[in-house]
Computed example of a mutant assay.
Amino acid sequence: MRIHPIFVGLALFCTLPGSSLAQAARPAFTPSRNVYRLPFADGTHVKVFDDFFTHRPPGRNDLFAIDGQPPYRVVAAASGRIVAIQDGYSEQQSGRAAKDCHNNYVWIAHPNGEWTNYSHIAHDTVTRKAGLKVGDWVKAGQYLGDEGAVGCAMLHHVHFEVATPNPKEPIDSGGFLTDNENGKRERNPRFCGVPGGFAVKGATYQARPC
C-alpha cells in the first residue's frame, strides 16, 4: 500500500453544523462538503445494504448493484487524486474480525479535503484492468475497478465512505482510517440523484452523473 506524498500532511478540513443524535453509539451526523455520485457506472441500479447509521461500525455505506450482468463497474464518486490502492487480495473472509481481514480498496483525495474509499474491489481490477496507480488524477464517473467480495464481505458490494483523515497518518497498513474513534472522521455522503441526498438502508437508486 502506498500513499501519494502530495496529500499527506495537508490540513484541508472543515467543520459543518450537524444535528445531534439521541443514540450515543451513532457518530455525529456531519454531512459531506461535496455532493457525490453513487460509485457505480451510469444507469446501474444500486441497493443500500447498510447506510451511514446502520453499518457496523457506523459511518459507512454498503452498496451493491442489482441489475444487469456482473462484473459491475465501480467508478469515482467525484474527481480527485488516488492516494492509496490495494487490489492484490482475492479471498473472501466473511465472519472474521476486521483486523484479521485483507481488504482491497481505493482511496481518493478530493480538492475539498475529503477522501473517499471504495473497498472490497475485485482482485487486480484497479491496477491491471483499470490501469490505475497511486498519484493518478481521476474524474467523477471514471472506472476504478469491479465490485467484489474481497476481505470482510458477506456479499459482492462496495463499502463506500467519506472522511476527513488525520493529516499526519491518514490510514494504516490495512487501509483503515487512523484516529477515528466513534467514527469522528466519517462524513455522511450527500448523493446526487438520491431523494433527500442521503442513502437509506433498503432503498434502491440509479447511479448517474451529478
Rank of each mutant, 00 (worst) to 15 (best):
M1K: 12
I3A: 11
G9S: 09
L16S: 15
P27W: 08
A28D: 04
T30S: 15
P31I: 15
N34H: 12
N34R: 15
Y36V: 04
G43E: 00
D51F: 10
T54E: 01
H55Y: 03
H55E: 00
H55N: 07
R60H: 14
A65I: 12
A65W: 01
D67P: 13
Y72K: 08
A78F: 05
A78T: 07
G88I: 01
Q92D: 06
S94F: 13
G95W: 05
R96W: 01
H102C: 02
V106W: 01
W107Y: 13
A109M: 07
W115H: 10
T116E: 02
T116I: 10
A122S: 07
A122T: 04
D124P: 02
D136N: 02
K139G: 08
A140K: 15
G141M: 10
L144C: 11
G145R: 09
G151V: 06
G151E: 00
A153S: 12
L155Q: 14
L155G: 12
H156W: 06
F160I: 07
E161P: 07
E161K: 14
P165L: 08
P165S: 11
K168L: 05
G174P: 04
L177T: 12
L177W: 13
D179S: 05
N180I: 11
E181P: 08
N188V: 07
N188M: 12
R190D: 03
V200K: 12
V200H: 14
G202L: 11
A203M: 14
T204N: 04
P209N: 06
C210S: 10
